[in-house]
Amino acid sequence: MLESIILDLISIGFMLTGTFFFITATIGLLRFPDLFTRLHATGKGDTLGAGLILIGLAIHAINAGMTSETVKILSICVFVFATSPVAAHAICRETYIKEGKHWVRGGKE
C-alpha cells in the first residue's frame, strides 16, 4: 500500500515535469530568432519532455502490474534519447551547408 502511494507520487511528478519541458520547447520553437537557436530549444526540451513522461507512464505501468508494457515503454524512451539528437544534427548540418550564416545579437554576421 505504501509503496503503491510512493510510486504514484513519483509518476505524477515525472509526468508534470515532462509536460513543463514540452511547453518550454514549444515556446522556444516559436520565439527564438533562427534555426540553430530553435534547435537548441527543441532538441533538448523535446527529448527530456518525452523521456520524463514515458518514464512516468512506465512507473504507472509497473504499479498496475503490466510488465510487457513497461519494457516496451522503456525501449521507446531509450530510442527517443538515442535518435532525437541525430535528427536535430541532420537538419542543422543541412542548413549550415546551404546557408552558412547564423543569427548574432546586434546585427548580421
Binding site: 520547447a25 514549444t26 520553437l29 534555426l35 530553435r38 534547435l39 527543441t42 523535446d46 519532455g49 518525452a50 527517443v80 532525437s84 535528427a87 536535430a88 537538419i91 543541412e94 542548413t95 546557408e99
Partner: peptide, 14 residues
C-alpha cells in the same frame, strides 16, 4: 525555409 518546417514536424511527431 524547409528546415524550420521539418523541425516543427519532428516536434509534433515526438
Amino acid at each position: 525555409r524547409a528546415g524550420n518546417r521539418i523541425i516543427a514536424i519532428n516536434v509534433i511527431g515526438t
